[in-house]
Write a protein that binds this DNA or RNA. Structure first.
Lengths: 281, 281
DNA sequence: CAGACATTAGAATATTTATTCCAAAAACAA
DNA sequence: TTGTTTTTGGAATAAATATTCTAATGTCTG
């Protein structure tokens, strides 16, 4: 062997990794120093690169890069990469199993249920922050802010969201019609040329919602959609599609992320320049 | 071959990818739809996963996943992955810093607003977890689980919560009446001796809600209340009071905590022994 | 400058991962 | 039902990738 005992235990967090990198750096052979430098400067690419790519960019041979990983305490590059891939996000929440456990263990405890829903809410919010499509959001705001009247529709589990949006719009004096289907009244006649539609729908997509969206599409109205994923039937028809990565707990959706996104959308519209061409705070 | 000409040119941006995903989704075989759904919901993991992992999570065979990639226009999984790897941005150091950046960047931008609401949601959830009154929760579950029919009321900003609770109860086959005030119909005649009332109200407390609560009180019905703090007028009348420490952002309530608490309450009631004295999965 | 030792690069190998192919199963049409 | 087409899962193959080994090179010491 050579330089004493490099490091028997691999780092288990990114923070630990940083620390290890710092301690190791002195008195390292030239090529390995190059590895250290390149890794430090490009930590974000480790999760998505191969040894070949990384070593080429660092200007060293792949084998040198391997040795470097081992000096850091890993068995090889793969193990090091796994650290970065896993810490990319909490490893996929397996809610099916967790629900199962809950049923088995403390099924009776409502407090445990609250904890679960709180957790689901946190995950949803975090995931929203991570995967937000800013361009689509801007487009949705734009389209809705220009509208004379905003039509809102959402059925079943999406109804509460639609209802609250209508409430918020009303508070902000934004003209708005909620298509709530009361009395089976069909309000599609209320769609006027300069209006826009905001549709909220999650799987399984309610036919009434889809039908209104299609009607709006036929009339050439712009459509903003809040839905569960980009492959939803709404996405095809909408001018701007906002997808909310909501984490379900059991059969029930926490809606935290949907809520955050919807409110932000509403407030952005309410304070938009398009809607208030003249000055306002 | 089979279905005409699927897609000769692969998407070159994430936005294009989203669009392609949306167009492709109709009239797709079952397994491939599963792929589409899973990919749409977990776009952020594509860069750091293998086909084996992704297909397993989606519950399909790897070969099916490959076919899916090709339908999307890619030559295979690797090409699709390359798209995501190139535009990969890791979320660490940590989520708080990211929000900070997002806020700092464009103070007025819709994306910054989303960040604000996400933050408010996190705080609300956290404080709910800390301040939850387990005894009151247990009491509320108890009271509502024993009821023949659960009456739900919530007006204005609390209406969405009431509406969703009614939806969830219906899904769980729990008899429930939503006092939604449609047509100014007063449903208080529907309060029967063995029923219970679940009232949701935040300041300023809607008169209709208070009025129904008083009516229930007069009839001797048990009342569970979800409200903003223990000194609310509802607390005086209710059998069990759940207070939700919601964090407001601007004039608007995030409701994340209310949501988590309400769902937990509903699920606890739905799966309660009182309601299902005989066995059920 | 010679000898010992440390470091390196590239070839050889092992392992993982992607991709294709085909027979069985399922869906569909007549 | 039967025959036809589509869809599926798994085994077989191909490709990419990580890892180890070794000979060669470079560096340092006396």
């Amino acid at each position: 062997m050579d330089a004493g005992l490099p490091a028997p235990d691999p780092p288990t967090t990114i923070a630990e990794f940083r620390a290890r990198l710092a301690t190791v750096n002195d008195r390292l052979p030239r090529r390995l120093q190059a590895c250290a430098a390149h890794v430090a400067a490009n930590m974000d690419r480790i999760a998505v690169s191969t040894v070949a790519e990384l070593s080429a960019r660092a200007g060293v041979a792949p084998s040198a890069f391997m040795r470097f990983c081992q000096i850091l305490g890993f068995s090889g590059f793969s193990e090091m990469q796994r650290l970065f891939r896993d810490s990319y996000a909490p490893p996929w929440p397996d809610y099916a199993t967790r629900l199962q456990n809950l049923k088995g263990a403390g099924a009776g405890s409502p407090a445990a249920l609250v904890a679960e829903f709180v957790e689901a809410g946190h995950l949803s919010l975090e995931s929203l922050a991570k995967s937000l499509d800013e361009a689509a959001l801007a487009a949705a705001v734009d389209v809705l802010a220009r509208a004379d009247t905003i039509h809102v529709i959402g059925a079943r589990r999406a109804f509460p969201v639609a209802a609250y949006l209508a409430y918020v719009f009303e508070k902000m004096a934004v003209p708005c019609i909620l298509h709530d289907g009361v009395g089976r009244l069909d309000l599609r006649g209320a769609l006027r040329p300069d209006d826009a539609l905001l549709a909220i729908s999650f799987a399984p997509y309610a036919p009434e919602t889809l039908s209104l969206v299609e009607a709006a599409k036929d009339s050439g109205l712009p459509i903003a959609a809040i839905t569960d994923h980009a492959a939803s039937p709404l996405a095809r028809l909408a001018t701007a599609t906002l997808s909310v990565p909501e984490v379900d707990f059991g059969a029930f959706r926490s809606l935290s992320a949907t809520w955050a996104l919807s409110l932000a959308l509403a407030v952005a519209i309410g304070s938009s320049e398009d809607r208030h061409p003249d000055a306002k705070a």
